[in-house]
Amino acid sequence: MDVVTRIPELAKQFRETRLSALRPVNEFFDHQRLSRPADMNEATSRLSYNTRYFSGNYGIVIALLAVYALLTNLALLIALIFLIGGFAAINRFAPEPMQVGDHVITQKSLYTGLFVIGIPLLWIAAPLSTLFWLVGSSSILIMGHASLMEPGLESEYGNVETV
């Protein structure tokens, strides 16, 4: 099955699985439920519960931080656009060898040229530092929120069986 024909199906599946886990904004930012945990055991139990309960919201936080990181690191954004766009252009417009004057240009030579230019651009853009910033900032935000947010009443009744 072609990817283009599967897009509506993939969007529906994404909506059912990931977006169903989103909690309302007023619940995610409920300042009345914020409190300092009494000890490390309470902080750990809050982390465990809240990371599962707010998993969809935390995914959005990570996505927003990733977009922010790309927009503030324009060199990385340009390098990624160059590499991804070049790869797509070569696949679309040059699937077979072309004759230019006395030279035959193949897909392999185009990929080589793309990577000879694109990999140094990517190296200069420092993607690892951006990745480490993203991991660090998202983990600090998520762990801070999850440990400070008191679990709701539904967490107390999560283990109760209905008859």
Rank of each mutant, 00 (worst) to 15 (best):
57 N>I: 09
126 A>M: 12
23 R>Q: 06
141 L>N: 05
89 A>G: 11
72 T>C: 02
138 S>V: 09
103 H>P: 01
44 T>N: 13
85 G>R: 05
111 Y>Q: 03
152 G>Y: 02
15 R>S: 14
53 Y>R: 09
27 E>H: 04
162 T>I: 14
163 V>F: 15
114 L>Y: 10
147 S>L: 09
52 R>H: 09
43 A>G: 11
64 L>E: 12
95 P>W: 04
36 R>P: 00
75 A>T: 02
137 S>I: 10
33 R>V: 08
99 Q>G: 11
88 A>Q: 04
138 S>L: 09
87 F>N: 02
59 G>D: 04
23 R>P: 01
124 I>F: 14
119 I>A: 08
109 S>P: 01
59 G>C: 07
13 Q>P: 01
66 A>M: 12
95 P>C: 08
113 G>W: 05
54 F>D: 03
133 W>A: 13
69 A>T: 11
29 F>G: 08
140 I>C: 11
70 L>I: 03
26 N>R: 14
96 E>T: 15
103 H>V: 12
1 M>D: 13
16 E>F: 12
15 R>I: 01
11 A>K: 12
80 L>F: 11
69 A>M: 13
121 L>T: 04
77 L>R: 00
3 V>F: 15
4 V>P: 00
119 I>W: 06
115 F>D: 01
142 I>N: 01
78 I>E: 11
55 S>Y: 11
132 F>E: 12
33 R>Q: 15
14 F>M: 13
51 T>N: 09
141 L>C: 09
149 M>H: 15
29 F>Y: 14
58 Y>V: 05
57 N>M: 10
121 L>I: 00
125 A>N: 00
9 E>W: 07
46 R>A: 04
98 M>E: 11
159 N>E: 03
154 E>K: 11
37 P>W: 07
99 Q>N: 14
113 G>Y: 02
91 N>E: 13
152 G>L: 03
128 L>P: 07
2 D>K: 06
138 S>I: 12
31 H>R: 15
98 M>Y: 03
97 P>S: 08
104 V>S: 07
119 I>H: 06
64 L>P: 05
25 V>S: 06
115 F>L: 08
93 F>N: 08
68 Y>G: 07
70 L>R: 00
49 Y>G: 05
59 G>I: 02
14 F>W: 14
117 I>M: 06
11 A>G: 10
9 E>N: 09
151 P>I: 10
40 M>D: 10
26 N>W: 12
161 E>Y: 13
80 L>P: 00
45 S>Q: 15
110 L>F: 04
60 I>P: 02
9 E>Q: 08
17 T>W: 12
12 K>R: 12
25 V>Y: 12
156 E>G: 01
78 I>R: 07
159 N>K: 07
51 T>K: 01
94 A>Y: 04
58 Y>C: 09
82 F>K: 00
72 T>F: 03
3 V>P: 02
92 R>T: 13
75 A>D: 05
100 V>L: 13
107 Q>L: 04
144 G>C: 09
32 Q>L: 13
89 A>Q: 10
82 F>E: 02
106 T>V: 02
